[in-house]
Computed example of a mutant assay.
Amino acid sequence: MRPGFSFHQNTERSLSARTLGYLIALISFAVDQASKLGMLYGFEIEAVMRREGPVSVAPFLDLVLVWNRGISYGLLQQDSELGRYLLIGLAVVASILLSVWLWRLTDRLTALGLGLILGGALGNGLDRILHGAVVDLFHFHWGTFSWYVFNLADVWIVVGAAFLVYESFFGSKDTADKSGRNDAANQ
């Protein structure tokens, strides 16, 4: 790692955890939306799917278009406008709570994880507002095994959650000291 940049240290030359988290949220949101807009309007995936079906990128990856009106793994499918607005409201509330949590952070790895989750939540939330459903594009499969169709926002959310789980189990000594998990060792 470069001097002056660490996930767990705050120096005058490095970004604060808060700034890092919000920057990651903005970048992940922008990349997610750019990929969706590129596939919808540049590649015109909807027309391609009608003409040719799924586009094989690799033996294990296809580009497809699925309008997900539910939440993760297609759960809680909402075909009504009320359901759509409830899911938009849930995304707004979750994004606000994540933003408040991020605002209070001093740990950079946690901020990175929350930033990814926030960027993904905002990306999928904007899809619901603009399209009435989340735009899912990538389908992994192997032999008879088929993974669900997802987008980059889903990837950011999963990776961000993995960072939070990692931090909760293997966080730095500084993080453990701040949270009080290491009180016995400090006495």
Score class of each variant (00 low, 15 high):
G160S: 07
G123K: 01
V165P: 04
D136C: 12
D154K: 05
L122P: 04
G132E: 02
F150M: 01
L164W: 14
A162Q: 09
A121S: 09
A133I: 12
F138K: 05
D127Y: 09
H141T: 04
G132S: 05
F150Y: 03
N151S: 12
W142D: 14
F163N: 06
V155Y: 00
A162M: 12
V155L: 01
V155N: 01
W156C: 09
G132V: 04
N151I: 12
N151C: 11
G125Q: 00
G143D: 04
G160L: 08
V149W: 07
W147R: 00
R128S: 11
Y148H: 14
V159R: 07
L130F: 06
H139N: 15
E167C: 15
F163M: 12
H131L: 10
H141D: 04
L152E: 08
G160D: 08
L122V: 07
E167R: 15
L126P: 00
G120I: 00
H131V: 09
L122M: 07
G120P: 00
L130H: 05
F140E: 12
A121K: 04
H141G: 04
L130E: 08
R128Y: 05
F138R: 05
A133T: 10
G132N: 03
N124D: 06
A162I: 11
I157W: 04
V134I: 08
D136R: 11
V159M: 08
W147Q: 00
F150E: 01
N124A: 07
W147C: 00
N151G: 10
L164M: 15
V158Q: 07
V155W: 00
V149R: 09
F140Q: 11
L152K: 11
L152W: 08
D127G: 13
N124P: 06
L122W: 05
V158F: 07
D136I: 12
S146C: 11
V134D: 04
V134P: 05
A162C: 14
L152D: 08
A161P: 03
L164K: 15
I129A: 06
F145K: 08
S168N: 15
F150D: 02
V158P: 03
G120V: 00
D136M: 11
W142H: 14
F140C: 14
V149C: 11
L164E: 14
A153Q: 01
V158H: 06
W156E: 04
F138T: 08
F145M: 14
V158C: 11
D154N: 05
Y166D: 12
A133H: 13
V159E: 08
